[in-house]
Design a protein around this nucleic acid. Sequence first.
DNA 1: CGTGGGGTTGAATTGTGTCAATCAACGTGG
DNA 2: CCACGTTGATTGACACAATTCAACCCCACG
Lengths: 240, 240
Amino acid sequence: MQISFQAIGGGSSPVGGPAFTGSASRLAPVSVTPGFRALVGGALTVRAQRDAEIVAQGDPADHCYLVISGCLRTVTLMEDGRRQVGSFLMAGDLFGWELMGDYDAAAETVTPVVLRRIPISALEVLAERDLNFARRLRQMGADQLRAARERMVLLGRKTALERIATFLKEMAARLPADGGGNITLPMSRLDIADHLGLTVETVCRGLTHLRRTGAIALDRQDFRILDGSALDAAVHQTLH
Amino acid sequence: MQISFQAIGGGSSPVGGPAFTGSASRLAPVSVTPGFRALVGGALTVRAQRDAEIVAQGDPADHCYLVISGCLRTVTLMEDGRRQVGSFLMAGDLFGWELMGDYDAAAETVTPVVLRRIPISALEVLAERDLNFARRLRQMGADQLRAARERMVLLGRKTALERIATFLKEMAARLPADGGGNITLPMSRLDIADHLGLTVETVCRGLTHLRRTGAIALDRQDFRILDGSALDAAVHQTLH
DNA sequence: CGTGGGGTTGAATTGTGTCAATCAACGTGG
DNA sequence: CCACGTTGATTGACACAATTCAACCCCACG
């Protein structure tokens, strides 16, 4: 896959507007720090269409990216093609800043995206000057570790149905809903499967099961939680 | 389970001696920083026997611990008792410093241990003054994230035999070997199983399989890698 | 010299994967 | 506007890897 984004110059429009409501993990987004806002304001804007590779596994991590709009996935590939999607990145998420070395996973676009690309070195300079920002970075690192550990429990110990139910609740918390409470999943069933350590078929069966038991409404990419407690409860059942 | 360690006063013996050879993940241990050595030198020494809980899941993370000797596990429990062992901690490892909030997992001793307990606040003060140390902390955070992501691939996409082989190679890299290349695993089969997202029986069968195929020698807690490439190769086979 | 807690092995079961067919949605070109 | 091919989603039948259930072994320790 080729990198295929068009850089369109150092944007100057302020960041932190309405695009950021619905940001990640119920925390204030990185952009709250004035110094960081300035940094982002001067950063290169990057646009890319669907299924573009923004960074490759093994690339030196000299830039990080702030997601303005759209959705990305981080992908780790095994030599034989088995794939693990580590996380999905949404508007407001910053990625690639924590690594100190090479990227350990590729970042690919799930939908068309708009990003701001920031040199890591600029981030470090800012962190040294702005203690508030440094603290926020550490907070983000801690959050990522916490999330990674939760994911280990999910992948190591949860059943297929539990994983799917957990995923839906996660997405419901992160993605915006329309008036009727409907949420549109940006990613394919394959992406979901590779995120949950399952196959496409199992994901489908799980979703169908949740729909049939009345926990969710489902229509292609759109879903709505009808009965949150049923989602929690369904969790110990089997699929047959 | 009750906390059951005996504090034996602020130790003054220097840290960084032979106990640290064979430290974590082929990186220089934290103790290389002079400021940190001083911090550790003044820290409270904590001893605990086997199966003691050093920190509980949900406790405020106001202290972190440097492992001087022995082995610990980090444990996440689900309400119904399913257990996930996130990682094993060996001599030279520092844990509990990255969290900014509550511990997201318990830390329990696998063997009798000797630890140094350091207030997080002291760590932060040091990090602000000693840029080298701050950088090392960030490096450790990055390493943990990397390890967590590798673990996701293992738990999400690898077969039982692959997980077991991977685990053995990890342990061979972290634990000291005696003259004959023999390594003693400090943890039980149950701990291994909960670390790999498997059952005790599957771990046993996997180990037996590797022994029968000549990849390893195995006698209770002791093992030796006879054929490293067989370990890698065995990886795609089934157990029957 | 029992006793009990790991560890190992075997047989049966089952949750999830694999393989395959069908369907729905969409773009394309005649 | 409609056949056509393509791609992703869904469903079914079957296979199999790993779990579950159970028995047994082996030491360590009272």
